[in-house]
Amino acid sequence: MAKKGSFEIKVGLAEMLKGGVIMDVMNAEQAKIAEDAGAVAVMALERIPSEIRRYGGISRASDPQMIKDIQNSVSIPVMAKVRIGHFAEAQILEALEVDFIDESEVLTPADEHNHIWKNDFKVPFVCGCRNLGEALRRIGEGAAMIRTKGEAGSGNIVEAVRHMRQVQSDIKRLTTMNQDELMAASKDMGAPFDLIQQVAKSGKLPVPNFAAGGIATPADASLMMQLGAETVFVGSGIFASEDPPPRAKAIVDSVAYYKDASKLVEISTGLKSAMKGLDMSEIPEGERLQERGW
């Protein structure tokens, strides 16, 4: 009997996206540009994070018509975002048959205590994290892919680096612990004990670990891959740059050849300006998107 919607099949799609670039797009035309540049998937949203920042107001899941238009224009997987805890938005996206749902801090949270119980869905979910405890809470709820939060829409890689290094060092620390230390680690990190045990034993996350939030150049993508990311999401970095198609292509190439510096010279040469970006000091504490999620 064919079995659909299992955790295994959800993680399976995440595996297929490895070594690729997932690009934020706001309409069918951008989705085509992303696909032609070699994106492995697109994330459909009404405003890329840098514009969400500028625009203000409440940011919600996208109009189904816009998602349908994008689904009809490309053959690669189409992802879309829902507000943290907004399971009704997720039910709508599942009925639309999007391929992956991002329960994302980029949108305005709908619940300040609970995330979506993702195990109830057939569609796989990706969630952001800043450390291992947060990653394992999301996996416990059913997330099939984890990404760093970084600081979306900033064009600044510093937070994605911080979060990726934090997850990696949390994992390393667990692998050095004795069995009798793991329960306390589970308590300190606020993470499910069975997943703590699993990570302590395997030395890696139980699902693919991607990078997001602030990637703007081929070198940024290479940096995140070398720090242990298995794929990168590029949000504002492409369509807020001066000339998106060549930059999109260059970032795809930089992920495939992330360890080859001489190839990266070739890839990075002649691109027009990257997005301007923001220093973290320019984003007041209460306005940092990464602080959303619990």
């Binding site: 064919a2 919607g5 569609v123």
Partner: peptide, 14 residues
């Protein structure tokens, strides 16, 4: 034919 069984919701093991 690519993606001939449908989207991810139609992916399966057997």
């Amino acid at each position: 034919d690519r993606n001939a069984y449908g989207r991810q919701v139609d992916s399966f093991t057997d």
